[in-house]
């Protein structure tokens, strides 16, 4: 059985730990590194126009509008779970805390996302039923 471990290299003054994590968890060994979230903005380095347009759009979307920034943060958190993006989950859990959103509100948002996702699976059951009936005498 393979156990996946997230590298812990945030410690201060613990050089041995940092060395171990650097050596052991290179890019080849892990797809997700929490520290990569900080580097998100760097995608612009390789395509400035598209990157800049994306971040302008992104920033605008989450501004206060017909929906409050608080409501949008909860929607983002729910979607983050549905698309299973660990970076987005980290980012919007933190964003929710910053906006004073409670853990109960956050969990309800996750359930809202999960319900839609499971509903999306289950509603295909109708297709299965249709097909079943069509093929059956």
């Amino acid at each position: 059985m393979v156990v996946l471990t997230i590298p812990v290299n945030q410690g201060l003054g613990n050089d041995s730990l940092i060395k171990i994590s650097t050596k052991k968890y290179t890019m080849a060994n892990t797809y997700y590194d929490a520290a990569d979230l900080r580097k998100f903005g760097k995608i612009t380095d390789w395509s400035e126009e598209l990157g800049t347009k994306f971040f302008d759009y992104y920033g605008k979307v989450f501004e206060e509008g017909a929906l409050s920034a608080r409501e949008k943060s909860l929607i983002a958190l729910a979607v983050a779970h549905v698309v299973k993006c660990p970076y987005c989950i980290d980012a919007y859990t933190k964003d929710g805390l910053q906006k004073g959103i409670t853990k109960e509100e956050m969990m309800e948002a996750v359930h809202a996302g999960a319900a839609i996702e499971s509903g999306a699976t289950l509603v295909h059951g109708v297709q299965m039923m249709n097909k079943y009936n069509k093929l059956s005498m």
Binding site: A69, K94, L97, K99
Partner: peptide
């Protein structure tokens, strides 16, 4: 005075005031 209870920054002061 509101200060975050953890390792995150405070949100918008006006929005927080309204919530409080």
């Amino acid at each position: 005075v509101y200060n975050p209870s953890g390792a995150f920054l405070p949100g918008d002061q006006v929005a927080m005031e309204n919530d409080f």
